Simulated scan of single mutants.
Amino acid sequence: MYSKGWIMMELTMNWITLRVRNLEASLDFYHRILGLPVERRFESRGKQIVMLGIEGQPKLELIEGSDPPVKPECGVSVGFEVASLDKAMAELAKEGIPVARGPIAPNPSLRFFYILDPDGFEVQLAEHM
């Protein structure tokens, strides 16, 4: 067991990176469909990169490149809070995005479901009641 050291006092989550096959398809999913704002878009070492997220909150970094993406079955998922799970499910259905798993209600104050992004990564949408 690790003790709470000095480094934990200074850590702040900055971003989570997903390597994607098609940046435009992933950008359409996370920006247009889920509504994450594009913070910036740039190129680094020949790879296109987009940072998405709300100011002051951790970002989702999408990197398109020749490196193989992490396999979706590795257990990586990204989770977001929504105001209404039912509304989110209805809006996603309009976009033709099926629910992959759920909805699940592990306790009276939480409900969530999963959808898949263009690379097959699980995206959890959760509503706290």
Rank of each mutant, 00 (worst) to 15 (best):
G46F: 07
E95M: 14
G120V: 10
S26Q: 10
G5C: 07
S66V: 04
R19C: 02
E127A: 08
L27C: 03
W6M: 11
K47Y: 05
M13Y: 02
G56I: 11
G102S: 08
Q48C: 01
L52F: 13
E127G: 09
G53C: 05
P118F: 09
V50T: 10
A93R: 11
I33T: 04
F121T: 08
Y30W: 04
S84Y: 04
G75E: 03
M89S: 08
L11G: 04
S44N: 05
R40W: 02
G46E: 02
C74T: 11
V70A: 11
G53K: 09
R45N: 12
S3K: 00
E122L: 03
A90Q: 13
V38G: 11
S3I: 01
E10G: 04
V123P: 01
L18N: 04
L62Q: 04
A100N: 11
L60Q: 07
I49K: 04
W6S: 05
A93E: 10
I97V: 15
A83W: 00
R19V: 07
V123L: 14
E43L: 13
Q48P: 00
L27V: 05
G46V: 04
I49H: 06
I63G: 08
W6F: 13
G35L: 09
A126K: 10
I7L: 12
N14P: 01
R111P: 06
E55D: 13
G75C: 02
E64M: 12
W15C: 02
F80W: 04
F112Y: 15
E91F: 11
E43T: 12
Q48L: 06
L36V: 06
L125H: 05
G46M: 02
P72V: 06
I97L: 12
A88V: 12
E24F: 00
F42T: 15
E10H: 14
R40H: 09
E64N: 11
T17G: 09
H128R: 14
E43M: 11
L110R: 14
P98T: 15
P103F: 12
H128T: 05
E39A: 08
P69R: 09
A25P: 01
E43N: 06
I63L: 10
D28N: 10
L116M: 10
V50R: 06
Q48A: 12
A88F: 06
S66H: 11
G102W: 05
V76W: 01
N14Y: 15
G120Y: 02
Y114W: 11
E39T: 10
P69I: 09
G102H: 09
K94N: 15
S3N: 02
A88H: 04
K59V: 07
A126Y: 14
P68K: 12
L116D: 05
I54F: 15
Y114E: 05
I115M: 05
Q124N: 05
F121A: 06
V20A: 02
S77N: 02
I63R: 12
Q124R: 04
S77D: 03
A93D: 07
G120A: 10
R19E: 04
E61T: 09
G46W: 05
E64F: 13
D28H: 14
V38C: 11
A25M: 01
M129C: 07
L11Q: 08
S3V: 00
F112M: 14
